[in-house]
Design a protein around this nucleic acid. Structure first.
Length: 131
DNA sequence: TTGTTGACCTCTT
DNA sequence: CAAGAGGCCAACA
């Protein structure tokens, strides 16, 4: 009975036991943390994976407090649908996001990720559960 | 308490 | 093809 419709169930395995009902923000942080280095994803992809595709805005808003989290959240790996570093302005320095991505092997040009489609990391594809 | 804003996405005109 | 509006949820005044 693979109920892939309930994406939240998939997320439960990523979350620490004893807390199956985590906040939307924590879910965003969890997914963002598991993004492999050198890869990037979008707010909408994360939102869709959480089951709230239309809540892409909240994903970005959650990132606003990502730096407040005890664990480092690779928010630099989260870009918008166009592959642009829209959140770069919210980093410590406007170029920090680009520097971090370049340091991970990504190429940034004009505030945009080069080969964005190739480095795009889709949680629904990578974290999908078979059987 | 309501109203506005926000690191967005998608549909409609 | 470009511009506008709706939708989502949470924090702030």
């Amino acid at each position: 009975m693979a109920k892939r419709k309930n994406d939240k169930e998939q997320l439960s395995i990523l979350l620490p036991s004893g807390r199956k009902e985590s906040s939307f923000f924590e879910q965003v942080y969890e997914v963002t943390r598991i993004i492999p280095s050198g890869r990037v994803t979008t707010y909408g992809a994360i939102a869709a994976y959480l089951g709230t595709k239309k809540s892409a805005r909240m994903v970005g808003w959650a990132m606003s407090g990502a730096h407040n989290q005890t664990n480092s959240v690779p928010a630099q790996r989260v870009v918008n649908r166009n592959g642009m570093l829209s959140g770069s302005s919210h980093f410590a320095t406007p170029t920090l996001m680009q520097e971090l991505l370049e340091n991970e092997g990504c190429t940034i040009e004009n505030n945009r990720v080069v080969n964005f489609e190739k480095v795009f990391w889709n949680p629904e594809e990578e974290l999908k559960i078979d059987n």
